[in-house]
Design a protein around this nucleic acid. Structure first.
Lengths: 224, 224
DNA sequence: AATAAATTTTAGACAAATCTAAAATTTATT
DNA sequence: AATAAATTTTAGATTTGTCTAAAATTTATT
């Protein structure tokens, strides 16, 4: 089954929406792809005849097994290309999305296999997102030390390294709890300290020692 | 000026044809692109309104300066990607054309610049074709030693290393003259000798020592 | 130079992917 | 439960790139 770029964009968008929502709606897809609801309906009909999704009009839809498999392969391509652009061509991680959007549609299984090998079969892309392997298996969403967590990416505190009261009182003081939302705004090379945003409100400064004790998980969200 | 994939394919084809022919005809382009003459006419009108070529109906056409510049940039992209596929991803030189046909249409000046740097600003691609630099300057068609000449590629004897009668008599014996057409069919690793085709007729065997004295130029031809 | 052959262009149609506006359906509200 | 609001689908149009068949033009041949 070979898909057009447009079809690939739709199944990728549907896949990412259904991970959280289960059933997906026409408007959601239209919003993600910046297109009209009517265009989405047109494409749904087409993808249904290609047997890539379960769809009954007015009732919502979701990808079936075949559609899911294809979506994962598009995501695999996208993330491998992003890894290439950042690790090999030295782009910044925030410049690569648009280019990877184009590269992900290149049709050649061999190309992806070779690229994957060349990159050393990476498990995560530069944004910290998991890269599905050739069989479609997706590594677990990584829990990263705050030290290694990418800048400007929404994360959620998933664990704390030590339970010592000293640390906990400091964390409490900074409103950092398990499940707290945070975003690393800046890293200061001098002492490897961090400026971070907690729960979209507090701006706090974290020492290198404290950062080492905080584990963060990327918050799953829409695009890419 | 941004072009669609289709437009890029047309100006590339016209460019390669006009290098030899000067003026290009509708049928020639149709043959190269495997499409109908009517489609070519349609595209010519479009490219004319975009001011990329000089065209008067029934009179033939050719790219103007702007069109030529754009064509050269497409060729640059194609050849850089081929170099990447062969040198970095270890494809064989005969597997890369189709993939490069897709990659050449990715739109990002930055991507090409970074790729060029990563590859070490190569002057020739794996087929021995010159790669235009960022300003559009094309290196002279390389004259390669027979030892380094790619397999299965049509070449033309351009020079001989020494004029000693011993060599010339051997060359004469093998019908290898300046201007003779040849194609390297096989290279034997044991003694680095070659099996080559001369003038599409004779099959001759060339010792490593003799090969070293023969210089070959790629014969310019249609596609790629 | 007249006619035949080849080439090129026009005319009209089609598929893919999109749009807007109106109609159909579902969901929410009074 | 009736009506209003939101969502989704249909109907019909548009753009890009393509096609075939017929008409126009050029080139070659007798």
């Amino acid at each position: 089954m070979t898909l057009s770029s447009s079809e690939e964009n739709y199944i990728k968008a549907i896949f990412q929406l259904q991970v959280k929502d289960g059933m997906v709606s026409t408007n959601e897809v239209a919003a993600v792809l910046q297109t009209s609801a009517a265009s989405v309906t047109d494409m749904l009909k087409k993808l249904k005849t290609k047997k890539l999704l379960v769809y009954e009009k007015y009732k919502g839809f979701k990808l079936n097994n075949e559609g899911r498999k294809l979506a994962i392969m598009v995501i695999r391509k996208h993330r491998l290309w992003e890894t290439f652009l950042v690790n090999i061509l030295h782009f910044n991680w925030d410049e690569v999305h648009e280019i990877a959007e184009q590269l992900e549609h290149i049709q050649s299984q061999q190309l992806i296999d070779h690229l994957d090998d060349f990159l050393g079969n990476p498990a995560f892309d530069p944004h910290g997102d998991p890269i599905p392997d050739a069989s479609g298996k997706m590594p677990y969403q990584s829990q990263l030390n705050l030290n290694q967590f990418p800048l400007q990416i929404a994360g959620e505190v998933s664990a704390v390294g030590s339970q010592s009261p000293d640390i906990l009182s400091l964390l409490e003081h900074k409103k950092i709890t398990i499940g707290a939302k945070l975003k690393v705004m800046q890293n200061f090379a001098f002492d490897n300290s961090f400026e971070i945003n907690v729960n979209d409100k507090e701006r706090v400064h974290i020492s290198s020692q404290l950062a080492e004790q905080i584990y963060v998980k990327k918050i799953l969200h829409d695009s890419k």
